[in-house]
Simulated scan of single mutants.
Amino acid sequence: MTTAFDLGLDGLRAADGTSTEVAEALHDEFELLVRHDIGTSRSYVLAFDSAATWGLPGAENLAAFDVVRHPEQQTFRLRRSYHAVMAFAQKWLIERGCPPEALRLDPFLPADESSYLLEERIYGSGDRYEIRSGFAMDGGDARAWTMVVDREAAELPVRLFVEDLERFDLSYTLREGAFPDEDTALEWCRLEPGPLPPAPEDREMAAERTRAALARSTASAALGTAPVSAVPASGVAAQSDRGRSL
């Protein structure tokens, strides 16, 4: 991870009003997290805005930039989007053409498979999630959350994605909670009375896995055989770990 931050705009002028506004808002407090260049004409940039710490409490501090340069016209087009949770900042860049593998934040990795699968779902969610608000706390072990409305949810449509960054372990966790409305979700954020309430579809999947495991156990008992997991390693083909990378 490097702190060098340069969008490569020298000698170019803004192609439109939005580009002018974004360029004028650039400052020295941006710290580069990831940059992916496609030749000299386009760059996808993810940066940490340390100046956000001194602004409104909880201000979103991850800035995603999409830079398009037209050297022949000596112009640039610049777009920016602020986020609290990393996966949503990455999603914004992915949807604009950045390869997902170019956005990995070495050496940080998801702490568990649940975090990995959840961020993968966010990357490919399209317009499923309508972002309503976000909050970021910086410090030793930082926490951030993004609140969305899940357009595909049959119940409890307000979803809260909570990210905990563990700097010492160089890892992070990402979890999803489900709520009936935004006020209830905000109340949880304020009080944190317990674990995030799971999404109904996650409860159904967990129940299905439990039923399947019970069915396998019952069938094994009826046949007088041990469950597959109890068979000595020499009796089954070895399987390699799936593994993953960001």
Rank of each mutant, 00 (worst) to 15 (best):
V158M: 13
R159A: 15
E119V: 00
F168Q: 14
A144S: 15
Y116L: 15
A207K: 12
A221Q: 10
C189P: 01
P198Y: 04
T210L: 08
G139W: 06
L170P: 01
D141T: 14
R190L: 15
L223S: 06
P100K: 09
V158A: 07
E130G: 01
P100I: 07
V162Y: 11
W145N: 01
E155H: 07
R80E: 15
L103E: 00
Y123Q: 05
C98M: 07
G224C: 02
W145P: 01
L105S: 10
T210K: 10
M147R: 11
R80I: 12
W145K: 03
S217I: 07
W92C: 03
G224K: 02
R132H: 08
D127Q: 12
P157K: 10
S115A: 15
A199I: 07
L191E: 00
A185C: 15
T218V: 09
L191Y: 08
Y116S: 04
P195C: 00
R151D: 06
E187G: 07
F108W: 05
A153V: 01
K91H: 11
E95A: 14
V85I: 03
R80V: 13
A222S: 01
R209N: 06
F88Q: 13
Y129S: 01
E130R: 09
P198D: 12
V148A: 12
F88N: 03
L174N: 12
G126I: 01
M205A: 14
M205W: 02
A185I: 11
A84D: 00
L165E: 06
A221H: 05
L109C: 09
G140I: 03
D127E: 13
L117F: 10
S171F: 04
R80N: 14
D106Q: 11
A111Q: 09
M147I: 15
P99V: 08
L214G: 01
P180L: 08
Y123C: 01
E101V: 12
Y123T: 00
G124P: 02
A213N: 03
R79F: 05
D164Q: 15
P100Y: 02
L109T: 02
